[in-house]
């Protein structure tokens, strides 16, 4: 243990402690996490495929069917979030629940449910996109820049 009279310890002492501490920190169960993320993420995508197939079989073109498919998946996720089920899917599957569009929808609904306590305008209204916001921001920034480059270099 270093000199306890200093609040901030020097980098050497901190590095030494962090080596000691990291030996006690359990490694994340990587194989288990990868398998559950793969399985649950895959299942969500397969469900999405079912919805997509339904819209295509009812006469839409593939392109036309994309937006309604996303809407249905988002609606499903909203219901699962309202009933606390998506939280548990996330606990179990990690990125398998976070990365599909259903995880994106979950962040919006979860934030809305949580922040309504601070009012429907400054709470729910203002904070609904507290986690989903960055996804939209960087999606638009990168999407528009990439498309601009491609459009200009036709």
């Amino acid at each position: 243990m270093p000199n306890p009279s200093k609040r901030k310890h020097n980098a050497n002492e901190q590095a030494k402690y962090q080596r000691i501490a990291s030996a006690h920190v359990p490694k994340p169960p990587l194989a288990r996490n990868l398998v559950t993320a793969f399985a649950v993420g895959g299942i969500i995508c397969a469900v999405g495929q079912g919805v997509l197939n339904y819209f295509v079989s009812s006469g839409m073109t593939f392109d036309e069917a994309i937006a309604p498919t996303l809407c249905v998946m988002i609606a499903l996720s909203a219901l699962l979030t309202a009933t606390s089920i998506y939280h548990h899917i996330g606990e179990f599957a990690g990125a398998g629940a976070a990365i599909p569009i259903t995880g994106f929808a979950n962040t919006i609904v979860a934030a809305a449910m949580d922040f309504k306590r601070e009012g429907y305008i400054l709470g729910m209204g203002a904070k609904m996109f507290i986690i989903a916001g960055p996804v939209i921001v960087y999606g638009v920034v990168s999407g528009v820049i990439v498309s601009a480059i491609r459009w200009l270099s036709r």
Binding site: P28, H87, G90, T107, A110, A111, M113
Partner: peptide, 17 residues
């Protein structure tokens, strides 16, 4: 949880620590 971390119903996997 809502002050220090995330909304309650968010999909979040606990870390091993």
């Amino acid at each position: 949880e809502r002050q220090f971390r995330y909304p309650i119903e968010l999909n979040i996997q606990r870390k091993s620590t």
